[in-house]
Simulated scan of single mutants.
Amino acid sequence: MSVPQLRIAHEIVGNAVVVHVAGEIDMANAPVIKAHLDRACHRAHPPQTVVADLTEVVFLGSAGLSVLLEVDEACRGRRTPLWVVATTPGVVRPLRVTGMDQVLKVADSLDSVVQTA
């Protein structure tokens, strides 16, 4: 079984700065993903929203969970909310098990976030 290659892309959708991530988020690549999300956070200006689109992520490890918390805090400090879009079991389950789905703003579709942003 091969490990999905990490892919990251940025785009502006409506009033949201979106970072699309595909592959796995683990200890090895968490710093790269954090750098991309930090860049989006600094690029967004209130009332814009930052969105971490993780719909193509198959694994979210503890390092990735930490990144999401750190970026959420940074975005809150800039008054640009962070939304996490998650649909795969490899992302939804860790968010639920750790209770982070109660701490972070989590949605099941990019469209639902963009419509409210």
Score class of each variant (00 low, 15 high):
93 R>Y: 11
98 T>C: 09
12 I>E: 14
73 E>I: 12
48 Q>W: 14
101 D>V: 04
59 F>I: 11
1 M>I: 07
61 G>A: 13
8 I>R: 01
28 A>H: 14
82 L>F: 01
34 K>R: 14
111 D>Q: 15
53 D>S: 07
109 S>A: 04
44 A>N: 01
54 L>V: 06
63 A>M: 06
9 A>W: 09
31 P>M: 09
74 A>Y: 03
87 T>Y: 07
99 G>Y: 05
66 S>W: 03
106 V>A: 06
24 E>P: 14
67 V>H: 00
8 I>D: 02
98 T>D: 03
32 V>R: 01
1 M>V: 13
97 V>M: 11
60 L>T: 02
82 L>N: 03
10 H>N: 12
33 I>N: 02
12 I>K: 13
41 C>R: 06
43 R>L: 15
78 R>V: 06
25 I>A: 04
83 W>A: 02
47 P>K: 05
85 V>L: 05
117 A>R: 12
29 N>R: 05
50 V>H: 02
41 C>G: 13
26 D>W: 11
60 L>F: 08
83 W>R: 04
94 P>D: 03
107 A>N: 03
88 T>M: 05
9 A>G: 12
18 V>S: 00
37 L>K: 01
73 E>K: 14
73 E>C: 12
102 Q>E: 15
70 E>W: 08
21 V>P: 01
110 L>K: 07
106 V>G: 03
63 A>P: 09
24 E>R: 12
1 M>P: 15
109 S>R: 07
33 I>G: 00
97 V>T: 14
17 V>Y: 00
36 H>I: 07
11 E>M: 13
34 K>C: 12
19 V>M: 03
87 T>H: 07
6 L>I: 09
96 R>T: 12
88 T>K: 06
97 V>C: 08
107 A>I: 05
68 L>F: 02
104 L>N: 08
84 V>P: 02
67 V>S: 07
58 V>N: 11
79 R>V: 11
97 V>N: 12
66 S>P: 02
102 Q>W: 13
93 R>I: 14
70 E>I: 08
95 L>R: 02
99 G>H: 03
86 A>I: 00
92 V>M: 12
40 A>H: 03
98 T>M: 08
76 R>T: 08
30 A>P: 00
79 R>I: 10
54 L>F: 08
70 E>F: 06
38 D>G: 06
101 D>N: 11
25 I>H: 02
60 L>H: 03
105 K>P: 09
99 G>C: 09
3 V>Q: 13
94 P>C: 08
37 L>M: 10
36 H>G: 11
79 R>G: 04
42 H>Y: 14
33 I>Q: 04
60 L>W: 00
91 V>Q: 01
4 P>G: 13
101 D>E: 10
115 Q>L: 15
101 D>H: 11
